[in-house]
Write a protein that binds this DNA or RNA. Structure first.
Lengths: 204, 204
DNA sequence: CGCTAATGTGGAACACGTTCCAGTGATTCG
DNA sequence: CGAATCACTGGAACGTGTTCCACATTAGCG
């Protein structure tokens, strides 16, 4: 009676396998979301509009993504995966680990500047998410961590102290992004903040 | 035409003076908000409920606070002012500036733990706020900065580098709070993150 | 091929933030 | 005191996220 079988994508791995059609639908929804978000930001991503724009019924949209927040967090995950891919192909070249991390984050930041509305939608969703989205937000967080750890060029299993530093960098990254998106900090200030926090790297 | 006279409290100082009745109303609204938030968090702060609970018509509530976000950010400002007051009376006693800041933030954190729902409502509002609330969010940010600067025991005008450090600490504080509130980080982890970022103090 | 369960469709309905308005005080100024 | 202005009330109305439901389509499976 209760469960209507598994959602088509509970967290990431151990969910229903998704047929081709379903995967295509999912991607279509994410594409529509990106499109709408790139225009009007968070507010423009209206569930009815997403459904229409991706040729899917509202109920179906909600079956794939149980809330607007889930949808936008999934979009962020999508974008981050692309970024991670790009970064793997052309990794940062700076000599100093701290500079590599700062450079990587600034690259990501520049990508956000190109699509500020999209960035707005994704970041607002990320920080507004409550416990019901924690699994998905966690996935995004792991991705971000991976990107930073890669940039640091750490030996595979980083120690707990290094992980703390990475977490603090991630905190600063998110929060600085928010202050920029809400117009309370300039691009230059975000840069300074990122560089400042990267000063934590390579110290004990 | 257009402006319906000044809102009863645009940002902070240069607004309409507010009569006693009005100030009382304002405080009543904030009290009702705190009450409701302390129970059910962000979702429980429903504008109709706030209006009813503070014996004010919905339209009046909106005249005082133009949105739910404004209302919650104002509540946070209120709480922070109280905290600042408390801290001024009993300042941190640690010898090291970094330890003083960490201790101060942990004290604030403990206050949040006592009212997690209230904290949830306020912090979610703070990070969800868009440009239309930037003045109010800025006021909160200035208050937070003041608290941290006080704890550092800095000479009155801190240099730009020190201000960057303070901003990074603030970023970490907000973001760590969010991860705790959404159940993705433990209290211990928040403590570690705060202590880690405080390692930036007293260097350079 | 037909049966059955799972999926998808279209749309109504509901909740809550927000806006608006007509009427009723309350306050101030002449 | 009278009049004008402003604030407050009560409530209707609207938009958007979310839920629900009756029906249609699809996909596997004997």
């Amino acid at each position: 009676m209760g469960q209507k079988t598994a959602d088509p994508r509970a967290a990431s791995a151990p969910a229903a396998p998704l047929t081709q059609r379903q995967e295509a639908r999912r991607l279509g929804i994410l594409a529509a979301t990106t499109r709408l978000a790139s225009r009007g930001g968070f507010d423009a991503v209206q569930m009815r509009a997403v459904a229409e724009s991706s040729n899917v019924a509202l109920g179906t949209l909600y079956r794939y993504f149980p809330s607007k927040i889930h949808l936008l967090v999934a979009t962020m995950q999508d974008q981050l995966e692309q970024l991670h891919e790009t970064l793997r192909k052309r990794p940062p070249t700076e000599a100093d680990p701290a500079a590599r991390v700062a450079g990587t984050l600034m690259r990501a930041f520049r990508a956000m500047q190109r699509e500020p509305h999209l960035a707005d939608a994704m970041v607002r969703a990320l920080t507004f998410a409550d416990r019901s989205v924690s699994a998905e937000v966690d996935a995004v967080s792991r991705l971000t961590t991976a990107i930073i750890v890669d940039a640091m060029g750490l030996p595979v299993p980083p120690g707990p102290e290094q992980l703390s530093v990475v977490r603090v960098i991630e905190h600063t990254w998110h929060s600085a992004l928010i202050t920029w998106l809400s117009g309370r900090a300039s691009i230059a200030q975000v840069k300074i903040d990122i560089e400042t926090v990267c000063g934590l790297i390579g110290r004990r």
